[in-house]
């Protein structure tokens, strides 16, 4: 779910980053105010835990494995605001030091995984635990939480081709419209990743309840909210609506060439048959304006020279240990 660089336009990233600013501000002030001083280091260590949790692979049916984000678990253990900060920091470390998720897309990734996920997960958990018990509520919260986050990510991807195209109608960023991005994202998250998230949350909670029941004693004291589960169900329904979209229309990617011209994306017919499909696969069609002839000659020479020299240096440096070994 980590959105890489360049799939979202810089302006989308800016909007989502701006949306996260007040959330972070509130989270920081909440942490300052509500967290006792002796628990301040817990924020950083919670982030480290969240980072390591994302490294863990969980066994899934069929011998496969998947990894979880753990946002709901952190929200249950530390409170949603603290979880928001912890997951944000974990995402920052991933983006900067491990290339997982883009730098510009950091705001968008935080919005999905550090805001939408823990808050929707915690909301459901809080509403349902009085009725269904701790573990079931946590599983539902985790499942819905990660699917909400995936849905937001899918919408962010899907609005790119609607908003950002060049004069020829070619997408500048993520090329997939909503009708493609939502089913593609949700198919994985409604099944495998949702399951992984729920399993992760329940497994750790089960262990902690057994090993350290005093952790939960304080939380149990607060009155359980029964009867407001309706909100939760509505939330779940919102998450499940994309299922309806999948069933609609021709399956994506199965059009014939004549159908492609009529394919609507975002209410607008595509109106042309991709050159590459009409004429078969040809490089000329693929690189319509990718010849360097489009730029001033002198600049082109200079750029090519710099790139060429740098490439030679890199190749030589990579080759030289091998040559030494042979000698």
């Amino acid at each position: 779910m980590h959105i890489p660089e360049n799939y979202l336009s810089p302006s989308t990233c800016a909007v989502l980053g701006a949306a996260m600013l007040p959330v972070w501000a509130v989270a920081v002030s909440k942490a300052k105010r509500e967290l006792p001083r002796e628990k301040l280091p817990l924020l950083g260590i919670g982030a480290a835990f969240s980072f390591l949790g994302m490294m863990f692979n969980l066994p899934l049916p069929g011998g496969t494995t998947g990894h979880a984000v753990g946002g709901t678990l952190l929200a249950i253990m530390l409170g949603p605001w603290t979880a928001c900060l912890s997951v944000s920091v974990a995402l920052f470390v991933q983006a900067v030091f491990f290339g997982d998720g883009g730098i510009l897309a950091f705001g968008a990734n935080c919005f999905n995984m550090a805001f939408v996920l823990p808050f929707s997960g915690y909301f459901l958990y809080d509403k349902l635990r009085g009725r269904f018990g701790e573990r079931v509520a946590a599983a539902i919260g985790a499942y819905v939480g990660i699917n909400m986050a995936a849905l937001f990510a899918a919408v962010e991807f899907g609005i790119q081709p609607l908003l950002f195209t060049d004069a020829a109608g070619q997408a500048l960023y993520c090329p997939y419209p909503l009708s493609v991005s939502i089913p593609a994202m949700m198919a994985g998250h409604l099944t495998l990743f949702g399951l992984a998230e729920a399993a992760f949350t329940v497994a750790v909670l089960t262990y902690l309840q057994k090993a350290s029941p005093d952790l939960f004693a304080a939380e149990q004291a607060s009155a359980p909210h029964i009867g407001k589960a309706v909100y939760g169900l509505i939330l779940a329904l919102i998450v499940f609506t994309p299922l309806g979209l999948i069933a609609e229309g021709t399956a994506w990617g199965e059009w014939g060439t004549d159908e492609i011209a009529e394919t609507t994306s975002g209410g607008q017919a595509l109106g042309y048959i991709p050159g590459g499909m009409e004429n078969g696969f040809s490089f000329d069609a693929m690189f319509p304006d990718y010849t360097i002839s489009g730029m001033p000659d002198a600049a082109g020479y200079v750029l090519s020279a710099v790139i060429g020299v740098a490439l030679m240096a890199i190749l030589f440096k990579l080759m030289s240990p091998m040559l030494h070994r042979q000698a």
Partner: peptide, 24 residues
Amino acid sequence: SLLLGQLQVLVILPCKTFLTVTAI
């Protein structure tokens, strides 16, 4: 996206990815 007729993205996106990941 080849099927959507989005040919430029096929070249531009990986190139941009290479550039940004290398920088970071």
